[in-house]
Design a protein around this nucleic acid. Structure first.
Lengths: 287, 287
DNA sequence: GGGGGTGATACCCGGCAGGTATCACAGGGC
DNA sequence: GCCCTGTGATACCTGCCGGGTATCACCCCC
């Protein structure tokens, strides 16, 4: 059984994403004819029709969709292999620097926990150097999959932990952040129903993969904007308890009684368990 | 950033597993010199030393171990992409046969559950054809990873679910299976401590990845051997409740009060969720 | 000190990946 | 009707590189 080459997967994924041979070839920095030929060869070798050529553009077949999904995963795994190997490179002398670990964290989330974790780990004997890579919450999974990060602090229910190994670290409730003067800010507690459809405070919308879902609330893309809009009485936010640390004087946080608890996990690719990573996980579990 | 080719990974994994260029080349059906050269090129491209050539055999460096681990995962993902695409091949006509799903089950485990699941799913509209692939319990994870199977019935705590998405289906207790005449067979219940070190009934040993751990019990490799040895009064077994279906008349099953419960899960690769697979999972969750 | 076994080097050859030029065809203007 | 535009496919060439054979350099061990 002949095995697929990385090059073929790269080509096919490009075409499947662009749905256009010319643009795909441009993205791949090559001419269009060899690309067409390579895809044809791929189809012949797999014995499967991947694309429906309609003289006017291209469409994916069912098998094509499967290969797009699986091929992306395979390319991610291959890129991860290269990156992690390069990263482990310097440390081949047994007493040299223990490899470096890249830790992906959503910017400003779990700040206290992160500080404690880094301090405790640094105090361990034989601890590796930790590079903290701040990123958006939706990027973390991709970073772990393609090897740009080795380990991440993730938060359910926002992150999905499927495909990763993980260990729960802390659980916290959520609070509604309101403009200090708002009538709801006087309440001791609130329920989700209380804050779901407040007419003058529509929920802000975050982008997921670059696009905004439709809705009445303002479009934001960072925490500072959110804080300002709350202070201006334009929106409210539902955030974990620990986010109180970045609240302004004009904000009021009211506990939510029925919001799902937020669990912070340390997560890593299921198959990887280098000594350095194992040490970090052990330290985290002891916190 | 140049990406690793499948061929390079295949070569490196072969060398890293054999720790010998000649044998690795033989396994790869090629001559030794091009293999040496390819590994050198790989090291140069990654800028990393992967192997320590000691004139007498070869040893892996730290980076080499990383690449062995990650490279295997990448090769599995690539093989999975090819296999699943081929399998999805016939079904590109929209109204053709919905693709086939391969379901890996440990032979003879969860027999009742499996029958119910297959019957219920076959009754669904638009159900795919299910191919049942019986295998050893330790093979299931590998089969899912490299695409020979799409979905599996797994049993914690024996299977590890890390790296897969899963849904719990049933939970059951465990029983000790004893020769009918044994003194312990008269008991209403037993604890693990009661059966752990029974002098005349040492626990049988199953092979894990082809090798047996040392111990006093007999070496077995299938259920029939086990049943026979229990009937002969040579060993005892700890099995889930549902395994009572294959017991012999000369066997007695006694419930264990403190054995960990066995949970049967339906599990699948985290990223894959074809319509057919989603239907099967939905059916399973409704059982 | 020589022989066996290791991985590395030298050199050659054929296949194939990639390029350019061109074709075949479907739509959409006018 | 026409031609022009933009699509993917085909034809053909070329240079690189993957793979082969022959041989070397070295270490270990008898």
């Amino acid at each position: 059984m002949e095995t697929l080459e990385t090059r073929e997967l790269r080509y096919f994924v490009a075409v499947a994403e662009e749905l256009h041979f010319g643009r795909a070839a441009e993205r791949l920095r090559m001419a269009q004819p060899p690309l067409s030929r390579a895809i044809q060869q791929l189809e012949r070798r797999l014995g499967v029709c991947l694309l429906q050529r309609n003289r006017r553009g291209v469409r994916l077949t069912g098998a094509g969709e499967v290969l797009l999904r699986e091929g992306r995963a395979a390319l991610d795994a291959t890129a991860a292999a290269a990156r992690r190997t390069r990263r482990a490179g310097g440390a081949d002398s047994p007493e040299g620097p223990r490899g470096r670990l890249v830790l992906a964290v959503k910017a400003a989330a779990s700040h206290e926990l992160l500080r404690k974790l880094l301090d405790a780990y640094a105090a361990e004997p034989d601890s590796a150097e930790i590079e903290v890579l701040p990123c958006g919450i939706s990027e973390q999974e991709e970073l772990l999959r393609d090897g740009r990060a080795d380990v991440a602090l993730m938060h359910t229910p926002w992150n999905s932990l499927t495909g990763f190994d993980s260990e729960a670290l802390t659980t916290e409730g959520q609070v509604a952040v309101l403009p200090a003067g708002h009538r709801l800010a006087a309440r001791e507690t609130l329920s989700l129903a209380d804050v779901r459809d407040v007419p003058d405070l529509p929920l802000a919308r975050w982008p997921t993969h670059g696009t905004y879902a439709p809705g009445p609330g303002p479009e934001i893309h960072n925490q500072t904007q959110l804080a300002q809009l709350i202070a201006l009485g334009r929106t409210l936010a539902i955030v974990p308890d620990s986010a109180r640390s970045w609240l302004w004087a004009e904000h009021t946080a009211v506990p939510l009684t029925d919001a799902p608890p937020v669990v912070t996990h340390i997560a890593w690719p299921a198959h990887s368990r280098s000594p350095a990573l194992a040490g970090l996980i052990r330290t985290a579990a002891r916190l």
